[in-house]
Design a protein around this nucleic acid. Structure first.
Lengths: 118, 118
DNA sequence: AGACTATATAGGTATCTGGCTATATGGATG
DNA sequence: CATCCATATAGCCAGATACCTATATAGTCT
């Protein structure tokens, strides 16, 4: 387990919660899930906490907590505009973690295609 | 969240544990991590619980518990030969879950490449 | 059959997780 | 400057998780 694996593990812990996985999929396709915002573009700036809170039907502090876990894993960034905080997905980081996970688990052959292949 | 997403979530919960992720990577490349076995081939039959227990340095019941979680997520299967139980990874299921996760998270563009793309 | 071996189950405990309410913070607005 | 608004933090509690030891189970071998 090197540092790379640690970030993959953080990614897995972040998205292994039903609610966080759901939120992340919403953020990745925000116009499909949220109405337009006055003071920030859904795609360019992200989705404000209030929208997420309302849609998921949990308390605002709980949602903030989930967003912090996603942020600490590097999967989203936040930006403040006026009174709102907008969370936007980090598509490159998400792609990198998916790629890293595939590198760990996705090998088709047991030992690199050698004589061990089934 | 449909049934497909549920299996992805089960996959994520199974591999979001450091120890289980480690074990799964060992099982995927067993000859790199374990010595040959007398009564079962590492690749064809899988790795016996005793080997995993010794290598990971935890109690045998704890390891059995981890293996059951991996098995319930469909990521490994078990086979008994004589007194040993061998666990082998289900490479097709693992690949399917990885693919499903990419389908959820891997879209490069926000809304399918439409005018929302950044 | 009886002893032995490897794994599974039961049961107990400490820690982690995920939710809540109440309150603080930091900007915006009048 | 005072108020208000959206979000963040603090603190609490219930349930889940991850480990352990002790014991049961199921199969092998003499």
């Amino acid at each position: 387990m090197d540092a790379d694996d640690e970030s993959i593990l953080a990614f897995l812990k972040a998205v292994s919660s039903r609610h966080r996985l759901l939120i992340l999929t919403w953020l990745l396709a925000p116009r499909q899930h949220f109405p337009p915002q006055r003071d920030g573009d859904l795609v360019e700036d992200g989705v404000c906490v209030g929208f997420i809170t309302e849609k998921i039907g949990m308390s605002q502090p709980t949602v903030t907590g989930h967003m912090q876990i996603l942020a600490e894993a590097g999967l989203v960034t936040s930006r403040r505009i006026k009174n709102w905080v907008f969370y936007r997905p980090c598509r490159d980081v998400i792609a990198a973690r998916l790629g890293g996970l595939e590198g760990l688990l996705g090998a088709a052959a047991p030992e690199g295609g050698g004589p061990d292949a089934q």
